[in-house]
Design a protein around this nucleic acid. Structure first.
Length: 214
DNA sequence: GACCAGGCACATC
DNA sequence: GATGTGCATGGT
């Protein structure tokens, strides 16, 4: 179907090597969940400021985040933008994490993974991309993340028709049908796509010719 | 000063 | 199911 999907992974890996995402400090599941919420429509450097503010307040667990007054939470995450809604989203995510993180960390079959994704999508502030980022990077499940970078790469390098506007699940299915079901590979591939985009051309609207890597 | 950044909820058609 | 709008900060 789209043999370029796998070839692009090989090309990116050959160029950049192992990325070892998620790019948070501790690697703790909760920090990944919080980062996934904070990075919505926001540059990662600003997420780091917000996470740094929380860390300096001693907030490194979902319990401590819920213990923080809402006003203090909002001030801490202000650099990441949309702080009024993201503060509430973080509280929802914290409650979810306290209740479900242990169960979500266990390996599971495809049907159960689908059920866990559906459960995550019921958390206010968690859409498809955030849910998949959490499942892949916080809980190590084999699911492919579609984001703005992925759409750009799909359109420009993989020549997937209308990749920029294809529904999320449809584009995700294309990637997953053309790759082995492998958590490690999905993890690295998405990280490599982000690396490639940041390395070559920053803007979504930029029409410059990218480096020919296939 | 305009444009952009690893989206999401909600309303509307 | 597809499309439009509000949300907010910080870098280029």
């Amino acid at each position: 179907m789209f043999p370029l999907v796998e070839r692009l992974y090989e090309a990116l890996f050959a160029r950049y090597g192992e990325q070892r995402w998620w790019p948070s400090k501790s690697g703790a599941a909760w920090e990944i969940v919080a980062g996934a919420v904070l990075t919505q429509n926001c540059a990662w450097r600003n997420v780091e400021k917000a996470l740094g503010n929380l860390a300096s307040l001693g907030v490194d667990t979902p319990q401590r985040l819920l213990a923080l007054p809402l006003g203090a939470l909002r001030e801490a995450i202000r650099p990441a933008g949309f702080f009024m809604q993201k503060s509430l989203y973080l509280q929802e995510a914290a409650r979810f994490h306290i209740g479900h993180a242990a169960a979500f960390s266990t390996p599971c079959a495809a049907a159960e993974l689908h059920a866990r994704r559906a459960r995550l999508l019921r958390v206010r502030g968690v859409g498809r991309e955030t849910a998949d980022s959490i499942l892949l990077y916080a809980f190590n499940h084999p699911i492919f993340v579609i984001d703005a970078y992925t759409r750009r790469v799909a359109e420009r390098h993989l020549r997937i028709p209308r990749a920029a506007t294809l529904p999320y699940d449809a584009l995700q299915a294309i990637f997953m049908r053309n790759l082995p079901n492998d958590t490690r590979l999905y993890n690295e591939y998405h990280a490599l796509i982000v690396r490639q985009c940041k390395d070559t051309c920053r803007k979504q609207t930029c029409g410059c010719a990218w480096l020919q890597i296939l």
